[in-house]
Simulated scan of single mutants.
Amino acid sequence: MELSIIIINYNTFELTCQCIDSIYKETKGVTFEIILVDNASKECDPKLFSDKYPDIKLIENKVNQGFGRANNKGMELAKGNFFLLLNSDTIIINNVVNKGVHYLNQDKKNGVYSCHQINDISSIKEPEYSFFFKDFSLFYLLKNIPFIQIIYSKYLNKSSKQFSKGINKVNNVSGAFMLLKHEVFEKTKGFDPDFFLYSEETEWCTLRINKKWNILFSTEEKFIHLEGKSGVKDFTLNQDFLSTAFTWYKKGYFEYFSFLFIHIFLYYPSWLILFFVVKSENKKRTLRLIKIFNNCFKQLIFDIPKYKNNYGARKNFLRYK
């Protein structure tokens, strides 16, 4: 078996079927298996997947185990030399999977591959430079203070377009389409089970994978990602911020408390000031940032530091309450 494709389903039956159909249609020249992990969906009986696709391997979780733990479960059962972690709200096009396998095979140091996301076949979304080359430094935090962002917006916009055409070596890729060698999972143990949702791929890539392997991103190849179709907005915004903060904690205690200090004494006051001075169309965004920080504050202060920051240190994953 060359490739194991792992998909997590949570109440997205139609989207997941669309994703699976695209795999069968657009994946040529490589033998593959599909492992579908259902995270205790209530939308319909997960066995409907087996009825429609007899060849897939279906894992039915009794409770929602989150993105990372569910993917780890699928990878533990996978037989392929390569694993493709694929969101249920994605669509494969142009034989992109086989091309990714080809790139990883070119060098034994190549460990992970991903490519350009598009919203649909005609709408190209520019890669976010800061996401793929994200670091966890005091400088990174300071340069993103709202007032500094405004002052240097022109510079930041230019830096977001510093990809070379073709293959780039990056620090981080999206978990929506993450192709990796089997040995990467074996030697790093996969996603940190302390994460529930969001930023788990950032922690895995930036803090563990890129210490031993190249992480590749292609600007030429593409897949469709129907973002926002598989989540509840209010919950996801809070969970996203909480998981981002948690990645700083996983990086180190000094980094995390720097993150807290800068957010409490620099970011938060800046948001409050901006709320009263920005134009009305930007007030909603500023108010949303204030609300997210307020909603997560208790967990930032008490829940995250409650456990050590090593891999799998928590009794339960970190979920926004």
Rank of each mutant, 00 (worst) to 15 (best):
M1H: 11
I7K: 05
T12W: 01
E14Y: 07
L15R: 04
T16V: 14
C17Y: 08
I20F: 13
I20T: 10
D21Q: 14
I23Q: 09
Y24C: 09
Y24E: 13
E26G: 10
T27Y: 10
T27S: 13
S41L: 02
K42F: 04
C44G: 01
C44Y: 02
P46H: 05
F49H: 09
S50M: 12
K52A: 06
K52W: 08
K52D: 04
Y53N: 10
I56Y: 13
K57A: 08
E60D: 05
V63Y: 12
A70H: 05
G74K: 07
K79N: 14
F82H: 02
F83G: 02
L85R: 03
L85A: 03
N87V: 01
T90Q: 11
N94A: 07
K99W: 06
G100K: 05
Y103G: 07
N105Q: 13
Q106H: 03
D107E: 06
K108F: 02
K108S: 07
K109E: 14
Q117I: 06
S122H: 15
S122I: 14
S123P: 06
Y129M: 08
K134Y: 11
F136L: 11
F139A: 04
I145P: 00
P146H: 00
F147Q: 00
I150N: 01
Y152I: 01
S153P: 00
S153W: 05
S159M: 07
S160K: 10
K165H: 12
G166Y: 06
V170S: 11
S174E: 08
G175M: 02
M178P: 05
M178I: 03
K181Y: 11
F185A: 04
F185P: 07
T188G: 13
K189V: 09
G190Y: 13
D192P: 09
P193S: 05
D194P: 06
T202R: 06
C205I: 11
N210S: 15
K212P: 03
F217S: 12
F217G: 12
E220F: 07
F223Q: 07
L226K: 15
E227P: 00
G228I: 02
G228P: 01
G228W: 01
S230D: 12
V232C: 02
F235M: 04
T236Y: 00
N238G: 11
F246E: 06
T247L: 10
W248F: 13
Y249M: 04
G252H: 05
L260N: 07
L260F: 06
F261Q: 03
F261S: 10
F261L: 13
H263V: 03
Y267P: 02
Y268H: 03
S270V: 01
L272R: 05
L274W: 00
K279H: 09
N282S: 05
R288G: 00
K291T: 08
F293S: 02
L300R: 08
L300V: 06
F302C: 09
D303S: 15
I304V: 10
I304Y: 08
P305N: 04
K306Y: 15
N309M: 07
Y311C: 11
L318W: 12
